[in-house]
Amino acid sequence: MGITYEAVKALSAQLYDWSLRKVPDDTKLGLERALERESQHGAREILKMMLGSARRAEQEERFVCSDAGVPVYHVTIGTAARLDGDIKQAISDGFDELVARINPPLLKHVTNPLTNERGYKGKDMPLVTWDVAGGADWVEILCQPKALGSGRWAALETFSFPTLAQIEEYVMKVVMQAGSQHCPPVIIGVGIGGSFDVAAKIASKATMRPVGSVNSEPVLAAMEERLLRAVNATGFGPMGTGGDTTALAVHVDYASGHGYTPVAVCFNCWINRRTRARLHADGSVERFE
């Protein structure tokens, strides 16, 4: 039995639905740790409210946020996976089916960028990126719906042969631009090098790493730690109304390039919507988050 159209369709719809009703466990833990350290009264109230909102959403299966964003999927196909049907169409059909059945209904967020009209459908929606995993016989789908707060403040600039100091300066510039706007504490992804699109993809993928995970490369681990301290020293705080917690994590990754070096910085808001599961060759579903 291969990985079928039906299985991909059902799973992509399910992943979106789950992502709206649960703040990932690693993120809740990050918020709890932040609450232990947070020194400002107002900020503590907000962090407590965030944890309360997350708890209530999970218990009552409610949406954490009314802005369900737009469907964004990252699909990794094992080179040994046997595909049975048009899995690209399956993701799109899965979203349509979700819109038709989800309770409560979704708001219309899919926006035509040329007219600003909103609906449930649009060109190239859902937004899907594709990857392959050598030798694997599964298909993995990660769903990370993006909304204005979590998408609007991303930025990219291209440098030639930048120093680490210049790269870090740019990260801080983007953090300053975003300021109070993106429902902090945020998860920050930084992508360095490759090409324009590769840097953006690396940054985006970096936001998907669990909060609290340590980068396996010591150079990057140290960079993540000091950038996190720097971001939190800005004082924007939870919801941008002041405090010690502006980011829960900074995740950095890179690709080699030519010497012209794009640096991409992107954010996910505190609710950090993210679900991930694998479809195996025997039809079973393994849910990770």
């Binding site: 801080m172 300053m176 300021g179 109070s180 140290a222 960079m223 000091r226």
Partner: peptide
């Protein structure tokens, strides 16, 4: 919001210095 933006701008040189030291 405005005062936090101002404060952050004012502390930025110190933050960058700290980053340089740690780097």
């Amino acid at each position: 919001f405005a005062s936090l933006q101002d404060n952050a701008r004012a502390s930025l040189p110190g933050i960058m210095e700290q980053l340089a030291g740690e780097r």
